[in-house]
Amino acid sequence: MAFDSFSAFIAMDGHGPYVWACYGVFFVAMVALMAGSVRSRNAIIASCRRGYETQADKSRVASPTPSATFTRVNIPQD
């Protein structure tokens, strides 16, 4: 240990504010970057899942019980 006491470690011979400001900003920035990256990746996975589910719902609703039937009627144009 390069310091005699914990308070000496915090004070760093008067350079404490500079040193701790640097380390504080470094940690906040890195944690924000890492957490943000993971969160945005998970959000994308969630939005993909939602997309597939609505797609599946639509096809399930659409194919077995069509709400209306359309019959092609040929009307002679001439």
Partner: peptide
């Protein structure tokens, strides 16, 4: 690296403890 640099590395003869910023700079 950071804990070693902050608490255990010796101080610099000229800059004292402010040089400890080097371990992230």
């Amino acid at each position: 690296g950071i804990i070693w640099g902050l608490a255990f590395a010796p101080e610099d003869y000229l800059q004292g403890n402010s040089y400890r910023i080097i371990f992230i700079h």
